[in-house]
Amino acid sequence: MISLHNVSKRFGSFEAIRSVSLRIESGEIHGIIGASGAGKSTLVRMMNLIEQPDEGDVVIDGETLNHLKGKRIRQIRQSLAMIFQGHHLLSNKTVFDNVVVALQLAKVPKKLRAEKVMESLRFVGLDQLKDQYPGQLSGGQKQRVAIARAIVNQPKVLLCDEPTSSLDPNTTAEVLEVIQRINQEFGVTIIIVSHEMEVIKSVCERVTVMADGQVYQELEIEPTGVHKMEHSAEGIIKRLKSGGDFNHA
């Protein structure tokens, strides 16, 4: 379970996150939606302490993270995998080597690495491309390699920061399908940050709507009530838009 307690973050005079509290249950797919600058990426980056909160606590499975340092925080990060809008792969390494680096960092014994990497690549459907370089892959394939790298250490949580923003609709659907399978097959808690309502609607169970560095509202997507949620969320966006705060629905 991930809990944020009154976390705040400033960049100079800009208040990116203002006293946000949030609770995400184990095994759920949780969406965070908001316009550019709403603070959603900063919020998710505080969950693995890529950004240190100025105030408040980040608690994962009962352990407060923001006072941890050095080796312990690096260990924790290995169980909180992350994928980004840009795939952030090593362009000078093959697909296989890009995935194996996560195992090297986690000090997984050498003899186990090849099998784990291939298992992970098979899961995302790229085992045939293991010897290719990222420059030879499409945008969607690169993102799937990034996913393979993220799940190879069997993390408890997968943080997805705008994972489909630079992809076309078909590729977006493929990537979201992989993300959903990770949740279903391995029970990994998934947090997806997006500014696209379609992305959130298609995979998430609960959604946090953010504006101006604050949680505006939390919504549930019920199995039979997608439309209810759709109207609700769009209503929020419209209201925010009319107030001039939400510039990118």
Binding site: I50, I76, R77, M82, L89, L105
Partner: peptide
């Protein structure tokens, strides 16, 4: 972003230098 990904994977400074930056 490559550095950011390295940090998110739990890389130490030494790992970041030798496994990411120099590569």
């Amino acid at each position: 972003g490559v550095m950011e990904a390295a940090v998110s994977m739990g890389a130490s400074v030494k790992d970041i230098i030798f496994k990411f930056l120099y590569v």
